[in-house]
Write a protein that binds this DNA or RNA. Sequence first.
DNA 1: AAACTTGTGGAACAATCGTTCAGGTATCTG
DNA 2: CAGATACCTGAACGATTGTTCCACAAGTTT
Lengths: 192, 192
Amino acid sequence: MVESQKVDGRKARGEKKRRAIVEAALRVIEREGIAGVTHRSVAREAGVPTTAPTYYFATLDELLIATLLWSAEALCDDILKIVASGSAREIASSLAKAVGCNRGRTLAEYELYLLAGRRPELKPAARRWLDLAVELAQPADPVAFRAFLAAIDGLLVQGLIADVAPTEDELEPIVSFLIRGRDDPAPRAEEE
Amino acid sequence: MVESQKVDGRKARGEKKRRAIVEAALRVIEREGIAGVTHRSVAREAGVPTTAPTYYFATLDELLIATLLWSAEALCDDILKIVASGSAREIASSLAKAVGCNRGRTLAEYELYLLAGRRPELKPAARRWLDLAVELAQPADPVAFRAFLAAIDGLLVQGLIADVAPTEDELEPIVSFLIRGRDDPAPRAEEE
DNA sequence: AAACTTGTGGAACAATCGTTCAGGTATCTG
DNA sequence: CAGATACCTGAACGATTGTTCCACAAGTTT
């Protein structure tokens, strides 16, 4: 009854191509925004025939949804690593990168984020990093932690529409404030 | 040399219709998102002929830009009133309304917000409320104020993708924390 | 090897898009 | 009241869209 051993070679390639299409869709969103996503543009980006996206995804919406789910998962890993590290400087550094060299990716993630605002079935995926962060951090002060998470989102969004992306050095004091609760230079170890 | 007294009646009606088109575009964005904005859909919403939007705005982009500028101005007034009021409860109440009964409008504003991330010429308009807030508040602790403004954005965005919109009572302690800097029940007057 | 299942891709469809343009209508001037 | 001017719009064009369809290739099973 071993059924996961000998998979159908056709389905295996199919899954691979399916994932390639999702990745291509994410690249298109990074470059041109959600508005630029069409079956044809994604197909061109992925190097597959025009009808391939239609074959793998019943509708264009379904492709967008799959892209959000995939992107949300990747985002979760990134953010949790950052938040778990705990150091204000590391967090600031990651934020600076998100609105700097990874600007396109961050922009894409927030566009998909807002898409969840109009598709209730996407909300769980979009909120997953929030839920996970709360679960993992087990913060002593839940209110302060909620404020911290909100500010992370806000700093990223505001960083995306700034003339010049904020630097790590500009962000560090703000992150510090959010972690410590006040502008107090004394560092505090937070290991449980 | 009085030139604003007797305006051309034709031009006056034109301006009125122009504004009606922008307002209709905002309503379409509230309802269907930026993706739903086409010359035809806006014209239908505004009750004007199909080609009217093209007549008043050289391109569809220009219509979106005009909508963002108009929406940003309205947002500025709202937010500044809120921030200036200072009371944590009032701020929390306004935030709850923004993600509650005014959900559609808030969603539209953030979609236009992100649009500015891809159109550099829109950035000043999108950031205007931030600049104004900093200018008006003249905060004693700029770092804490920056964190506060970021958290406002974050709370709104996160409120938009929550299963059920957060209530005023849930938001109040978070806002309080951000204003006071720590979970300290003692109120502090902040008049210069 | 034959039969069957699954993946693949080019052509073509109706629908809708942004935009153009020539003619019509309202308003102002003399 | 005529002429001029500016605003306005319905019809239409080419381009692009999502999607369907069908013939064919690749792989699996009997």
